[in-house]
């Protein structure tokens, strides 16, 4: 039956409404978990707070398990799930730019809006920078067009690369995530920071 929008079960507008409600919920949870604090976010790079790592990996394994179980029960057709196409060069370049911005600014794009909404001035400055970046990218597109499209791989999935089943890959990722949480908690004890 799913995805709802592809199978015309809900209209495009209902889809936007659902996306809006989910977005509001997402923003609320981000804020409530302390993601509007740039010190907390930057903590993952210094080891004193690994909540970012935990939240995103918990989200990933929850999403993987949810999709696979829904597929198993026949609730969703995984063939219709959009898989982001992989452009190796842009991924690497974009990752470095995004990572540098994350360390310097203390936010990622989503959390900067979250923090701006509770009135943090540094987040508003961050958003300003974000828009300048968008402007440079779009206006200068002809300059990086070749690089942007380079090394296109289609939409490969990890399990296809390893030749595993999706379920087995999910199980491995769960084990990896739990191991990382353990390392994260060890780091929090090792590099404690009382107030941030």
């Amino acid at each position: 039956m799913g995805p709802l929008i592809v199978n015309d079960i809900i209209s495009q507008n209902t889809n936007f409404l659902l996306a809006f409600l989910i977005g509001v919920g997402f923003g609320f949870v981000l804020e409530a978990s302390g993601f509007s604090s740039s010190r907390k976010l930057a903590g993952v790079f210094y080891g004193y707070d690994t909540v970012v790592l935990k939240v995103f990996f918990t989200a990933a394994i929850t999403g993987m398990l949810g999709l696979l179980f829904m597929s198993l029960f026949g609730w969703i057709d995984l063939n219709f799930i959009y898989v982001n196409p992989t452009y190796v060069t842009s991924t690497l370049v974009g990752g470095v730019i995004m990572g540098a911005g994350f360390i310097m600014g203390g936010f990622c794009p989503g959390t900067s809006f979250c923090a701006a909404s509770i009135g943090k001035i540094d987040a508003m400055v961050f958003i300003g920078g974000l828009f300048i970046g968008v402007l440079i990218f779009t206006e200068g597109y002809p300059f990086w067009e070749t690089m942007f499209n380079a090394n296109y791989l289609g939409s490969p999935k990890l399990n296809e690369i390893f030749g595993w089943s999706q379920g087995f890959l999910t199980f491995i990722i769960i084990l990896v995530a739990l191991a990382m949480f353990w390392v994260g908690e060890w780091a929090e004890k090792k590099f404690p920071q009382e107030e941030y």
Partner: peptide, 22 residues
């Protein structure tokens, strides 16, 4: 607590044949 939930679920999903509806 998380491990107690997700590991059994992971084992189940790894064991069942995938895409039975395809």
């Amino acid at each position: 607590l998380l491990a107690l939930f997700v590991i059994p679920l992971g084992i189940i999903i790894a064991a069942v044949p995938e895409n039975t509806t395809k």
